[in-house]
Design a protein around this nucleic acid. Sequence first.
DNA 1: TAATTGATTTAGGGCTGTCTAAAAATAATA
DNA 2: TATTATTTTTAGACAGCCCTAAATCAATTA
Lengths: 220, 220
Amino acid sequence: MITLTPAEENYLKAIYHLSEGGKKGVSTNDVSAEMKTKPASVSDMLRKLGEKEVIEYRKYYGLHITEEGKKLALQTIRKHRLWEVFLVEKLKFSWDEVHEVADELSHVKSRVLTQRLDEYLGFPKFDPHGDPIPDEYGDIRARPRQLLNELDLGSTGQIVAVKDSSPAFLRYLDKVGAYIGARIKVMDKTEFDGSVEILVDNKKSIFMSKDVAGNILVMV
Amino acid sequence: MITLTPAEENYLKAIYHLSEGGKKGVSTNDVSAEMKTKPASVSDMLRKLGEKEVIEYRKYYGLHITEEGKKLALQTIRKHRLWEVFLVEKLKFSWDEVHEVADELSHVKSRVLTQRLDEYLGFPKFDPHGDPIPDEYGDIRARPRQLLNELDLGSTGQIVAVKDSSPAFLRYLDKVGAYIGARIKVMDKTEFDGSVEILVDNKKSIFMSKDVAGNILVMV
DNA sequence: TAATTGATTTAGGGCTGTCTAAAAATAATA
DNA sequence: TATTATTTTTAGACAGCCCTAAATCAATTA
């Protein structure tokens, strides 16, 4: 049975996220940026994770996460997200306050604790950010996606993809401040032209035509 | 502001308990036994705690905890006991399962977390073992004591003292399996002679006359 | 293809917290 | 008091995790 130190868990979790996002392999610098540690420290850690076979690591050529690595990363992610639910739902933390604390809590090693917490929270399927919570076997229920222009007034979600991925469209999104991963809320809908006003990351309000909104996929 | 590492917190907590129990100073070996680490490791840690002025440390002569040290120890104890309450009351852990887990949880550094947890639990004054939970200023409310023969059927508590401390009485208690610190529950009360049946440490059931029970102080 | 640039790794060091083995101080006993 | 026994401390080592500085490798450019 492979066991990871808290630091190793954190690295593996970061690597998992990087693997999901980008298509190709993950580089030392990617991990360094994500973890906010120096590349030199990352090299050392990658060697260790390679020895534990949770990643496949070739010096100078980056890495790929292994199946075993994914499983372990999902365990950590599960714990992290369950604690986030607890902090927000039970202890009334706001979204932005939870991350660090959940991070520390998620390193407490007790399988029973995780199971009981899951049960206590009513086996939630998604965390407060809308990210799915893996079950104890690492399975994730894929969240259904909806087109942004079909969302109801007041509903929230996260931009996960675009139908039109032309550079022009992406540049436009970039310009107005929308991006893959952005948390959005529908603030207003105009009936006659189908345009919408959405709030991005609880900060910036932007207007969108029906055409634009109809090309954005949102996870609700 | 003094900050302690998790290990330092653990040592200080142990030292606080040792200081409360025995009257005189605390020795390196005492701490070693309590912490289950080698005396050599303890020496090193005592030097560090001495430098941080949470204890007063004289080489070869043991130590005394300082006022500042007591305050910090009580903070840690507060967190530990709040988590114990959470684990037992909300997550349905049993008494014997909670300690290690609460220990890890109590090292999560977030003042807000502790406050919100306290609030969520309804500001409990005692942990599941009956030990008092310090408030955020480190104050402990002394728990009221009751005579064992005055407890209601089904109530639980911990034996904390005896009114009659004659050797004969103590020998008797010892014989039947009651002792200072024992967790008890009143299982039966006989009206006509005032005798009671109590369950000790969730294991052993013993009978007591009214005279005996009337000499035992219980913290409920 | 050769030189330069940028990414990555290695080398060496610091800090924490543990250990074992050996030395030193104190306490107990003859 | 002198010797022995016990307690405590020091010395040196190791693992984890981070750093900086220097070396190495790979990719790009001239």
